[in-house]
Computed example of a mutant assay.
Amino acid sequence: MEVLGHDESIGKIKISTEVLEVISSIAVLETKGVSSLQNNLASGTIEKIGKKYRGKGIRVDESNGYLKISAYVNLSDGKNVHKIAENIQENIKQSISTMLDINVIDEINVHIVNIAK
């Protein structure tokens, strides 16, 4: 992913999608009502090889300047699912904006995988 800096005469800033995955995963786990992130196939395969995958449960897709983040979460029981999903979206957006000083996310999807009892 390429993000233009404030002063284009200096150059361009390139941010790895892995960085966005890590920031997003931290933001999701800090959201009240989230029990955990759900592993996806890629993260499970990488962890089996022996590397620790920090963006577990987050998928970042970048295509033609369009940025889409998907979070796969397990929620705690007895919570307002809709409100938690909105909070997750806001926390991801705010964390990336604060940490990287950019606001380029086009879409944030929250996938509720399980509700823990």
Rank of each mutant, 00 (worst) to 15 (best):
Q94F: 08
I115Q: 04
I23V: 12
S95E: 09
K93D: 14
I15L: 07
E2C: 01
N64G: 13
V22L: 01
V81P: 09
N40V: 13
V110D: 14
N87Y: 14
I69M: 00
E107P: 02
V34Q: 08
K14D: 12
N64K: 15
L41E: 15
N80R: 08
K93S: 14
L29Y: 13
A42T: 15
G44N: 13
D77F: 15
V104T: 04
N87C: 05
R54L: 10
N109I: 13
T31Y: 06
G57W: 05
N40T: 15
G33M: 12
S76Y: 06
G65L: 03
A116T: 11
G33T: 07
I112T: 03
N114D: 15
V60Y: 02
S25T: 12
E30M: 03
G11S: 11
V73K: 08
S9I: 11
S76R: 01
G78H: 04
K32N: 14
V22Q: 05
G5E: 14
I102L: 12
E8S: 15
S35N: 15
K79E: 13
E90W: 09
K117T: 09
K32R: 13
Y53D: 05
K52L: 09
H82E: 14
I88C: 07
S25E: 09
I10H: 06
L20A: 04
S97P: 05
A85P: 00
I13T: 14
I49V: 15
R54C: 00
E107Y: 12
K32L: 08
G57K: 06
A42H: 06
G65W: 02
S24D: 06
E30R: 12
S76I: 08
D77A: 11
L4I: 07
M1V: 08
I26W: 12
R54G: 05
K117A: 07
I13W: 11
E107Q: 12
E62W: 06
A85N: 04
E62C: 04
V60K: 04
I115A: 10
Q94M: 02
I112V: 15
S70T: 15
K56P: 00
N74L: 07
L100C: 02
G33Y: 08
V110A: 05
L41P: 06
H111L: 02
K48Q: 14
I49S: 10
Q89A: 02
K51Y: 06
N114C: 03
T17R: 14
K83I: 11
N114Y: 12
D77H: 13
E30C: 06
L75C: 03
E18T: 04
R54T: 05
I49K: 07
E86M: 09
D101V: 00
I13Q: 09
G55K: 06
T98R: 10
E90Q: 14
K14P: 00
V104W: 02
S43E: 09
G50Q: 10
